[in-house]
Structures are given as C-alpha cells and as structure tokens.
C-alpha cells in the first residue's frame, strides 16, 4: 500500500517537474526499500551504452566535514579524480583513514578548525570507506565513479541526474547498506530529446553495523 502511494507521488512529481527542462536530458530516479519506504543516500549512476563517457575537464573539489564527531556527508559520490578535503570543525583532533582497496590513505591526528594541507585525490573507482581512528563510530562512504552522471537520493528517496545527453544508459543503484545477496541492480534508460527519463529501484538494505558511540555524544547506536 505504502509502495503504491509513493509510486503515485513520484508520477505526479515527474509530471510537474520534468518536461524537458534542460538541453540535455534529465533522469529522475526513485529508490524504495522492501517496505516501500524511500531510501536515502542511495547513489544512482548512469553509463552510456552506445558512446564514450565524456568526462569533465575539471572536477570541482569536494569536502567531507567533521562536525560533532560525525562525517558529513555520510555518502559522497564523486567522479574519478576528484579531490576531497576533510576539514575538522570539531573542538578535538581527528585521524581520518581508509583501508579500502579503492583508496587507502591516512591523515594522522590533526587539530580542530583546520583542514589537511593537501586534499586526497580519489583516482580509482570503487567504494571507499573512511573512518576516524579515535572515534570508532565515525564512518562515511565515498563512492568513486567513472561516470559524471550520478546523483544521491535525498530523504524522499528521489535523485535527479541532470545534464545527461540523449542516448541509452545503464542506470545502476548503490547503497552502503545494500544487502550482500542483492545483485547489482540496473535499468536501461533510453533518454530521448525533449523528455526526461525516469526509473525506480526497489532495493534491499540491511541495518548498519555501528560501533558504540562514546558517552556524552549523540547519534551513536549500540553495536549490534
């Protein structure tokens, strides 16, 4: 029932907002979970099936902030080659690291109010999980993509990929809590001139494995 209501609202949303607004096409993606509820922080990416990827000449630098011992944003999709900085907006030091094969790096303890001298360049596609060595519960995901066409769902489970040239695309969805048994979900979307493409995904996500948050903090759950 909930699923049907959400689909209905999504259709209404498309009718009012997506009538070939852009020169290139746009893709509106809706991501729901098993219960029909919108899924936030799902990364939607589109790869052209009949042409080369035109990567942008420059990639704007991105930041992942640290506020109140929490990485912000939790999920950050970027294109390969993006430089990300990790400013420290807490009153304490942080030690950012990643052991992910896509990008293994470490920014040892650095003082609050500053950011490292050099941003980290994410030059390999894949998922990079970052953490803080002294705050076990701090965790964030950087999804490094080799396509410029991507977007992240908001709390309403909707993501809009803009500026997508006309053509056929393989649209994929990724989420940090995607169930292991879940096969990679993709849809082929044919984006025609004068009309935005739309697609929806029903994915299975699991609860996040979290560490205990230290006392006098907030937002942390007990480790299951």
């Amino acid at each position: 029932m909930c699923l049907h209501i959400n689909r209905f609202l999504f259709t209404i949303f498309i009718l009012f907002t997506c009538t070939n607004v852009y020169a290139e096409g746009g893709m509106i993606v809706k991501v729901l979970n098993d219960d029909g509820k919108p899924v936030e922080n799902a990364v939607i990416s589109a790869k052209p099936m009949d042409g080369e990827i035109i990567k942008p000449t420059t990639t704007p630098p991105t930041i992942i902030d640290q506020i109140d011992k929490t990485f912000i944003d939790y999920v950050t999709p970027v294109i390969v080659g993006t430089k990300i900085n990790f400013p420290n907006n807490d009153k304490i030091r942080h030690h950012v690291y990643s052991f992910s094969p896509a990008k293994k790096f470490e920014i040892p303890l650095y003082p609050p109010g500053k950011e490292p001298n050099e941003p980290v360049v994410f030059d390999n596609p894949g998922v990079v999980v970052i953490g803080c060595n002294i705050h076990d519960w701090m965790k964030a995901y950087i999804y490094v993509l080799d396509t410029p066409y991507f977007a992240k769902t908001k709390t309403d489970g909707i993501a809009v990929i803009q500026g997508v040239p006309v053509g056929k695309y393989k649209v994929e969805v990724w989420h940090p809590h995607l169930k292991k048994s879940q096969e990679v979900m993709s849809h082929v979307v044919d984006l025609v001139k004068g009309k935005d493409g739309s697609v929806s995904f029903d994915i299975k996500v699991v609860d996040e494995l979290k560490k205990r948050r230290a006392p006098n903090s907030f937002g942390g759950d007990n480790y299951r």
């Binding site: 953490g131 701090m138 965790k139 494995l209």
Partner: peptide, 9 residues
C-alpha cells in the same frame, strides 16, 4: 567478531 575499519575488513 568483525574487524571494522570502519566496515568489516
């Protein structure tokens, strides 16, 4: 137990 960094490695 998992070895978390911060996801299981």
């Amino acid at each position: 137990v998992p070895i978390l960094a911060p996801d299981p490695i």
